[in-house]
Nucleic acid binder design. Structure first.
Lengths: 129, 129
DNA sequence: TGTTTTATTGCAAATGACTTGCATTAAGTA
DNA sequence: TACTTAATGCAAGTCATTTGCAATAAAACA
């Protein structure tokens, strides 16, 4: 049988859709609990797996080691992270979009999202070295 | 006092340098154990932290959730991961290199490495949908 | 509409990567 | 060679995520 439409799944998807940014399972649980107090973290994880499998959301592993989820359609930001102090700033350039077509042709893949993270040293950490 | 040069640290760095690709702490432990059987995983983690802090190696969080380490100078590959079956293939294009100079100018950062991952559906998973 | 089937839930316990506390060991220095 | 303390290795502790299982509730069917 196909997957079922449960209150939990609807609520989880609604939270992700409303926030429109990458959220951790824990954040999703807490937001969804406002309307569904008995919701369990396990259930959140299982629904997130389903939503990823069916292509509705994408799973992103962040540099802090925590997995976050977001709607596929969301326009993602890219980050520049300082290896010294951990400061994170957003990079708005995205050279990848212009490449996806070509990579799709090369590989036969259907590309739905991507992640880019740059690592370096910020101005104050550069001096401190 | 500064950090000390121990047999463990030398061995760990040698493993990373020789392999010249991103390795997990566990992989590093097992490779290093061949010459240093008593080496503990804890020690591996602590040395990796030091090496990252001093800028010798970089820490990369992979889409499987496992942290890997590699020599800063190593030329890294980029990956294309299927959201359906998990198949991973390497992408050899890298549009980021040509951008780093500009981002450095914009942000004042000193960029030392980066990570790029593309997500999509491979040919067989595309059909299965 | 009531009944049946089984996907989904929520709890508790398990896993696995990584971290921390602490007594012991061994670099680096005097 | 003796001393200081950074680094080691073991054991135990975190914390995100997963798994087992009995109870629940969607969806299909009578």
């Amino acid at each position: 049988m196909a997957t079922r439409q449960t209150r939990q799944k609807k609520q989880i998807l609604q939270v992700i859709t409303q926030k429109d940014k990458a959220l951790s399972a824990d954040q999703i649980l807490n937001l969804a609990k406002k309307d569904l107090p008995t919701l369990a973290l396990t259930t959140v994880y299982r629904n997130l797996d389903q939503l990823v499998a069916q292509g509705t959301i994408s799973r992103l592993i962040y540099p802090d080691g925590i997995t976050r989820y977001q709607i596929i359609s969301a326009n993602h930001g890219h980050e520049l992270i300082c290896l010294g102090c951990g400061e994170t700033i957003d990079v708005n350039q995205c050279p990848i979009s212009s490449l996806t077509r070509q990579i799709e042709d090369d590989t036969g893949f259907d590309i739905v999202s991507h992640q880019m993270t740059l690592y370096g040293y910020c101005q104050s950490c550069k001096r401190r070295n």
